[in-house]
């Protein structure tokens, strides 16, 4: 179980190791741990994936697509008309309290909310890669809603990166049933779902779904893929979401510390080396 406290002496050892480009487990500043990714584990879901990072952090993601009504609210008419032609992505992240002491009790709610928000923000927009318009079945009425449920089963640092990696894999694995639209005349439309599994198809644009690279600022340097002890030493974190073309799709900062301007741009550039 990951510790929640760190001694000043350990923090000092970690800090000096990072200055030396040699971390406590022998990695350099920009080395990732081994990633084990599996897809299609949950038969009841439309798509699923499980990712383990260095045999420690363990995230399971299930994707379920369901028919729902399109989002018709929107204060401005323009926004409303765009929304009427779109499907939606609904995210939910839950950290299992047995994974770490910090997920037990009330503390888990904040972390769950933060991660859920982060994921919905990235995936519900043009930067998310998914072609939401393709998810619409009948404009103004029915659409596909993609439910993404992430479960953090075990924690050994760097949840966010693992979560995004798993989500991307789960979306790749997702098969959406085909909807056959019948025109009944008078503008009335109806649809049936194809039973034929062969006709099911992937969500368009899954390959453009970004993954995240989290940079942890420790001292005046930054590292990727931090262990729990390194995360406790971290002053500030920067999550940079990048897609396959190396385009930045989102940046979010967390942690209480601050990041100098020069370091910030350096940290953002780093993702290119990592990927």
């Amino acid at each position: 179980m990951a510790p929640v406290l760190i001694s000043a002496l350990e923090a000092d050892y970690i800090l000096k190791g990072i200055d030396d480009n040699l971390r406590a487990d022998g990695r350099g500043r920009l080395d990732y741990r081994e990633v084990i990714l599996e897809t299609g584990l949950i038969t009841q879901a439309h798509g699923s994936a499980r990712c383990r990072l260095g045999e420690g952090t363990d995230v399971l993601v299930g994707v379920k697509v369901d028919i729902g009504t399109v989002d018709i609210d929107g204060t401005e008419e323009e926004v409303a008309t765009v929304k009427a032609k779109r499907g939606r992505v609904v995210c939910n992240v839950e950290c299992s309290p047995i994974a770490s002491q910090q997920f037990a009790g009330r503390g888990a709610d904040d972390i769950n909310n933060e991660l859920t928000q982060m994921m919905s923000r990235v995936l519900n927009g043009p930067q998310g890669g998914l072609n939401l318009e393709k998810l619409c079945i009948i404009p103004g009425k029915a659409c596909w809603i993609v439910y993404i449920d992430a479960l953090v089963l075990d924690y050994a640092g760097n949840i966010v990166d693992t979560m995004f990696m798993t989500t991307r894999a789960a979306l790749f694995n997702t098969q959406v049933p085909k909807a056959i639209i019948h025109d009944l005349g008078d503008g009335e439309v109806e649809f049936d779902l194809s039973e034929d599994v062969e006709e099911w198809e992937r969500i368009e644009g899954w390959e453009h779904v970004p993954i995240s690279v989290t940079l942890n600022k420790i001292g005046s340097r930054h590292i990727v893929d931090a262990t729990p002890l390194e995360e406790l030493t971290t002053e500030a974190k920067l999550h940079v979401m990048v897609n396959r073309n190396g385009k930045i799709c989102g940046i979010q900062k967390s942690g209480s510390g601050s990041i100098e301007h020069s370091l910030l741009s350096e940290m953002v550039q780093v993702h290119i080396f990592v990927i």
């Binding site: 002496l9 000096k16 190791g17 040699l22 487990d25 022998g26």
Partner: peptide, 27 residues
């Protein structure tokens, strides 16, 4: 005291190696 002694790079590497070995054994 709350001060570490200076640890040079090769010692740090040996410590990391021993840690990883113990980790492998425990796995």
């Amino acid at each position: 005291s709350n001060d570490n002694e200076p640890v040079d790079r090769s010692t740090r590497e040996t410590i990391a190696r021993v840690c990883n070995c113990i980790n492998a054994l425990s796995r």
